[in-house]
């Protein structure tokens, strides 16, 4: 596999940005600056960063409650995301959503769904709207292995395939649905295979390898864009941190986690780039420094952001009517 140096460094930078952003978020959570549920993506960065390369600004993104990575990779400013987690009015959802509900319509980032599987029909509908209006765009739908258990997964694959809708279904298989291992929640653990049941294209890819994710997603997205119907991509990954801030991790061993950490997507990619002579110590230092400044600035944006006045409580339940 070959990769152009500038692009490689950009992929690395985005993964490092997600990693440091979340480490900072975890720290701020301990300080009580961020509350609610916080689902970290650490270990899975190659999925969002690799996949997002395949989408144009016209394409739509639908994600889950574990969506910090997708949001950053989509280019939503870190400050606007951090402010959202603070609950500030300058957050990407004006403080009404929090960590689980990031939205940025200007980037066609349609959320942030915290009901497992709940975003999938929405993605099907966005793709239906494109088809009916004759637009050649892709809707990317991210979801976890747990969502595969839900009826909406099966219904959505069936409907999208039946109507040949341009949806790219991206299953982030991190082997756990909260504390339930894949073997304990799926009778057929080969998720990519499920595409066959609904007559759509499907494949599995190593989610710890950012370049593999990128190229598989590009292939899939191009097929979808050509009008060949939906595609199911199973991306095999692992989350290094607890399910959420509320999880004591009783369901897996430290050894298992350590074993997976030897396949840390950032370390793997950095080592590979060094091997190929595309990355120097100075490059890495520069990336870390730039990311560090970006995170610092993001925290400053969140700290400085205003609280929405409580008089506005009932705002945005219904669309304001123009008399």
């Amino acid at each position: 596999m070959t990769v152009e140096r500038g692009h490689a460094l950009e992929l690395l930078r985005q993964m490092v940005l997600i990693r440091r952003f979340e480490e900072k978020a975890a720290e701020l959570y301990m300080l009580g600056k961020i509350r609610g549920f916080l689902h970290l993506y650490i270990g899975e960065e190659a999925v969002a960063v690799g996949a997002m390369q395949a989408f144009t600004p016209e394409d739509a993104i639908v994600a889950t409650y574990r969506e910090h990575g997708q949001a950053l990779a989509r280019g939503i400013p870190a400050g606007s995301l951090m402010a959202e987690m603070y609950g500030k009015a300058n957050g990407c959802s004006r403080g009404r959503g929090g960590s689980m509900h990031f939205f940025d319509v200007s980037r066609r980032f349609y959320g942030g769904y915290a009901i497992v599987g709940g975003g999938m029909p929405i993605a099907v509908g966005l793709a239906l709207a494109d088809t009916l209006q004759g637009r050649r765009r892709v809707t990317a739908c991210f979801f976890g292995d747990g969502a595969v258990d839900e009826g909406e997964f099966h219904e959505s694959l069936n409907l999208a395939a039946l109507w040949k809708l341009p949806v790219l279904f991206l299953c982030e298989n991190n082997l756990y649905a909260m504390g339930t291992a894949l073997a304990r929640h799926q009778s057929q653990m080969d998720i990519g295979l499920k595409a066959q049941a609904y007559a759509l294209a499907g494949e599995a890819v190593d989610g710890m390898d950012v370049l593999a994710v990128e190229s598989a997603t590009r292939r899939a997205a191009e097929a979808v864009r050509r009008g060949e119907g939906p595609y199911l991509l199973e991306v095999r990954t692992y989350r290094f941190r607890a399910h959420s801030t509320a999880d004591p991790e009783l369901y897996r061993t430290k050894e298992e986690v350590e074993q997976w950490k030897t396949r840390d997507p950032i370390a793997l990619f950095a080592a590979r780039l060094r091997e190929w002579g595309l990355l120097s110590d100075a490059d890495l230092t520069a990336i870390e420094a730039a990311v560090g400044r970006e995170i610092e600035a993001a925290v400053a944006v969140a700290e400085a952001g205003p609280w929405e006045p409580v008089e506005d409580l009932l705002r945005d339940v219904y669309t304001p009517r123009t008399p």
């Binding site: 739509a60 349609y110 029909p121 929405i122 099907v124 709207a129 009916l132 209006q133 959505s156």
Partner: peptide
């Protein structure tokens, strides 16, 4: 195209209606 029979998937065709509405249609 405009009068669409759906599978028996209430959750998904209602959700697809929501998505289509977000995408500029009037389902």
């Amino acid at each position: 195209e405009r009068v669409r029979d759906t599978p028996l998937s209430e959750s998904t065709f209602v959700g697809a209606g929501i998505g289509a509405a977000l995408g500029g249609m009037r389902p």
